[in-house]
Each structure stands twice: as C-alpha cells, then as structure tokens.
Design a protein around this nucleic acid. Structure first.
Lengths: 338, 338
DNA sequence: GCCCTCCGTGCACACGTGTGCATGACCTGA
DNA sequence: TCAGGTCATGCACACGTGTGCACGGAGGGC
C-alpha cells in the first residue's frame, strides 16, 4: 500500500501540504522551482494520490458503474469492452455490477453503486429490460440505457436501428430475386420483434411488393430461439409454394432453421436462403456460414460511454441510434431458376 | 446523489454524529431506543453511507481490482462472472481493468488500481502471461494469479490441472480401443503445452503403452491454432499407418483438424476420433460436436475470489489446482474393426 | 522613501466517517 | 449519604485532499 501522503512530501520538501497539492495539480501560482522539487520528491517516494480522499472534497469519484444482466453473454462483454476503452482514455474507473435478472441482486447493485458514489451509470441489458429504471434513476446520477426494451423517461438511451437492419437484410434477399421471403419472429421481445417486422415490411414496400401474411410467423413464447427456428421452418415448408428465403429474428433462430432445413434435405443456400441477426460467434462457424445483420457491439459501448462522459461535462446528449451492418456470407444466394 | 450524511441524521435525531455512526454499525453500547430512532430516520432520509469517507479512516475500500487482457474473450468473461458472484456475496465492489496486452495500458491499470486503493487484485490472463507481476506486486496488496503461464514468486495462483485433463482425455481414447493416438501441440504456450504432453504420456504409461515419437507434433509457432490443426493432421495422415485418434492442444486446433479431415474425405468419428481442450462455445456447435476437456471457468473465478477474500481476512491460502472435466460428445468413437 | 501591486506560500477549514477517551446520569451496596 | 460502578452519549481528533483567504516579501512608480 502506497501510504505516503502529500503531508509526507510536504515535510520532505520543507513546505506546507497545500503547496504540494497545488504543485501536483499544476497550479501556476506555485514557483517553478518548488514545483519541480515537489514533483521529484513525489516520484521518488512513490506517491499515489488517494482517489477516496480526493473524491470526498471534489464530490467526484471519477468512477462509473456498469450494470449488465450477465457478463458471460458475448454481446454484453463486447459492449463492456467498448465502454472500458473509452473510459480508460479518460482515466475513469469502471465498477462492474451484475444484476443476473434477480430482483435481490438488482437491489444490491443499486446499493453498491450508491455507496461508491459513481458519477454515472450505464445499463446494458442483453435481453430483458424494464428493470432498475426506477431505483437507478433515484440515484440522481446521469444514466445511459443501451438497447433497453423498455421506454424509460428521464434517461438517455442508445440503441441499434432495428428497423433499418431488418430492412437491409430483407432488401438483400429481394434483390437476389426472392419473391417469397418469410419472417420468423420472437414474441418474447416484443419491441425489437415489432421493429424487425416493420423493417421487413418496408423492404417490401420499397420495391412495391406486398408482404404475404402467411409468411409472417410470430412464434410461440415458451420455445427457445433455436427450437423456434426449427418449428417455424417446418410450418413454413407446409405452405404451397413454400418460401425460398427466411429472415430470422436472430442468429440462433436461423441456426435452428438451418438444422431443420438440413433435416428435410434442403440445401442452403441453393434451395433456401437464410439470414439472421446479431452476428454471434457461431454465425461465422456454422456450415454454411450465416449471412447476418451485425450489431457493432464494441462501438455501441464506446458511444454509450461517450454519451455519459458528455453528460458529466454538462453537455446535452440526445438519444443515439446506431446503424447495423449487413454481413453477407454463404447462407444466401439467388433462388433456383434465376 | 444521496447527499445526506450522518450529521444530518444526527441533527434530526437530536444526537451527535458519533452516536449515529455507532447506531448504524450496531454498537451495543447505544440504547435500543435511540438506535431504533436513528435507523428509522436513516431509512426515511434515504441515507447511503459514503464508501470513500469510510475507507479513508478504515483503510479498507471493500473494493478489488480484476485485471484481464480482454473481456471479449469468452474464457475470461466466464471467469469474471464467477469472480463477481463471490465478491457480490460479500458486498465487495469490482473494478474491471483491461490490459489489452499493451504495455502502456498495463501501466495505466496499475496506476488506476493504486489510486483507488483496492484491497486486493485478481489477474486472469487468458493467454499471454508474464505481465504486470512486477508492477502489481509493488502495490503491496494480496494478488491472485489465475492460469498464468509465468511462475511468479510471492503471489498466490490458481490453475487448472492440465496434466490431469490431458491424461483423462487420452485415457478415454485408449479405452475406446485406439492404439495410435497422436498429439498436436502448441509451442507458443510452452508451459501448458508441456503439461498436456505429460498427461498424454501418463495416460499411455497407465496402460503400459509407450507413446510413439512420430505421433507427437510440436507444431510451428507462427501458425494460428486453427491452421496448426489442419497442417498437423495433414502431416499425421502421411504416416503409415496413420493415427486413428488425435488429441489436440485446444478446441480451435481440433476444429482445424476436423475441417482438414473432412477435406480428405475422412468421417469423424468413424475414421478418426478427435478431442480438444477448453470447451469453447464452438465445440458444441460444430458437426460432429466435439469431445473436449472443459475448464470449469466460472468455478475457477469463484475459487480465485474465495482465495483472495481469505487472504484479506489474514488467512493463509496456498495455491489451488482445479480439476478439469471430460465432456464426451460425438467426435470420439471406437476405431474401425473394434 | 512611501504606497500600491503582484507573487508565492501558509492557515484554517471542509468533505463524511470511525474511535479512544472523558463526561454525566443513574443505580447499587454498605 | 457517599463511594464505586455501569451505561449511554459527546468531544476531539484522525484519515488525505482541495480551496478561499490572509499574509509577508519583493518590486515598481511617484
């Protein structure tokens, strides 16, 4: 423990401790001579300022809290990586707190961040939303919500443009020549589900096409993503004619559909094109590699941190919308006969 | 910001602030009556103690630093998840710091943790090791190293039993009836490479078999894991007779070998059995799903945190070794003719 | 030579909490 | 009635840093 304080330096330099404080902070009122002497001594004694003592008087901890449901989720950890990158540049410390979607833990998180007097908070909920809001807002600290499913008043938020992502993905399929493009959705996440569906519609309308209702599957709630992809595809194949391409709510759903397609003897992308959303690790590994809509996760983290730091500087920061990127791989091709 | 202090409570309760402090900490010397009054007021006013002020006098911040190379690495994020679980139980805050394998950043990390006076530090290096040690040790704070490649004196460490993991994996292959089992290693990580090779040897000796030198591939350094798996397998197939099973340094190497096997028209596991190490996400997703040696990552994080907390309580904590687990999936089977 | 100005530094206090010691009230026993 | 003891509380100080203000000295203008 570096237990040397500015008082020790003061004594060694033969000055008062306020002089040391000013010298270290580069106060121009201190003579060059003493400033140099103090700096040299500080270095020599291995002085390290106490963030606690400093924050006590400045009322700033230079610390921000990051609340996520689970750090094991690759989406979340990429976002946190981006957050840290920006914060580290500004010498902010990052307190990581996991809510684990347990009310008890969420309460403890709020208490922890409150006691440590974080200057600001970023909440990156991977899936479920609508938590914390109330309690965290009560801390009276700048709050940035990332990809939150719930609309919360009084906070700043940042999210990916889901409508645009879906629109670009479906436009890609339509441009390849597909005319029967299906959508397998996700009722568990109503907000992004509705937006992706909207993008699906817009892509059709952009080409003066009308989406066919029987090709739009809401899916059942109780199912997991993967199984929803499989059962969804089974259902779609019973139509006549069946779709030649499917836009899936996310990559895991698309992989489920991919497995089902293989089971039915369909070749992807020759007989069926598939597109997912998220660009999870598995997407590039599966055979054929999945065409997908990537959320620039790291960049989103950076942007969120930038927003928060701007708020801390007293600047006004509106909400931000990030544009996703279509990554074309091997699971999409022109339909047979084109 | 909860800016109400014990002085405010004291004033409201008509007592002195030390009395409030004692009442909140449950000092038995305070009368039950005033204690209750103080607690009620504290709750009513929304009091939240200042960790900074408290730590200034107690010389304990109840905060620990976690240093990792990259949080985006799934191994690391699982470990951090485990660390957080244990720390949260004890109401410790967790400052996350990324070194990113950049000397400049490592220096900044040390400075940051030093200024925030963390009570202890856990270093979880995913791959490269031999960093920080010097600087971090200088902080005079309990230090736990997790899976570090370098031997560092004066610190506590925790690692997975690499020898045992390899031994169990190879024993599995031998028990299936394989008699020519190869090993594709990794010269970049000499420590764990040597240990897995040792486990490979032991498994043979356990059955009174002698490993054949031509079946042991060290691999070239410049190559990536995946490509090393592919070129390694190619080399092995030129032997006569070729091996019927391969134990790979890690899953990515095994996947590289898997792809090469497919390229040569070999069916896995019918013609060739493959085993990896790590149980990365991809391992269970690839076809056929990979038999592998899982490192209990989350548990390792928990154990590391437990060790650190024990050290903080002044207890002696030796080094710990974690036993890995063999996960049998679809990439291993008895050789043809068995 | 005197007054004013400017420059460098120190004094005192503040931030919020914890703790050793003293203080006063009350009770007990002789 | 008084000495001694217990109990609840307050006083003063400490932790390490930052800042408003006062102070002393040097220099310049008249």
């Amino acid at each position: 423990m570096a237990r040397v304080s500015i008082k020790d330096i003061a004594q060694a330099a033969g000055v008062s401790h306020p002089t040391v404080s000013r010298a270290l902070r580069g106060d121009p009122r201190i003579s060059l001579e003493t400033a140099e002497r103090v700096l040299a001594l500080a270095h020599e004694l291995g002085y390290s300022p106490s963030a606690a003592a400093r924050s006590l008087v400045t009322r700033r901890t230079h610390t921000i809290g990051v609340v996520v449901t689970s750090i094991a989720d690759p989406f979340v950890s990429d976002v946190v990586d981006g957050i840290e990158a920006t914060l580290a540049e500004q010498d902010y410390a990052l307190i990581l707190a996991l809510s684990r979607s347990e009310p008890e833990r969420e309460l403890a998180v709020v208490r922890l961040l409150s006691e440590h007097r974080v200057d600001g908070i970023i909440v990156a909920a991977s899936r479920v939303g609508a938590l914390h809001d109330q309690d965290l807002a009560r801390l009276q600290v700048p709050l940035v919500l990332l990809n939150n499913q719930a609309e919360t008043a009084g906070t700043h938020s940042l999210e990916v443009d889901d409508v645009l992502g879906a629109r670009v993905a479906v436009a890609h399929l339509l441009q390849l020549g597909h005319r029967r493009v299906a959508y397998i959705g996700c009722p568990d996440r109503p907000r992004s589900h509705a937006r992706r569906l909207e993008g699906y519609r817009q892509a059709h309308l952009d080409r003066r096409l009308h989406p066919q209702p029987e090709l739009i599957l809401e899916g059942r709630g109780a199912e997991g993503d993967r199984s929803r992809g499989a059962t969804g595809l089974t259902e779609l194949l019973s139509l006549s004619p069946p779709p030649t391409a499917v836009f899936c709510y996310n990559d895991i759903t698309a992989i489920g559909a991919l497995e089902a397609a293989r089971h039915y003897g369909l070749r992807v992308p020759k007989d069926l094109s598939l597109v997912g959303v998220d660009d999870v690790r598995e997407a590039s590994l599966v055979t054929p590699a999945l065409t997908t809509v990537r959320q620039p996760r790291r960049e989103m983290g950076q942007r969120a941190a930038d927003m928060l730091l701007a708020l801390l500087r007293g600047e006004a920061a509106g909400d931000a919308v990030i544009a996703p990127v279509l990554v074309i791989r091997e699971s999409t091709a022109a339909p047979i006969g084109q």
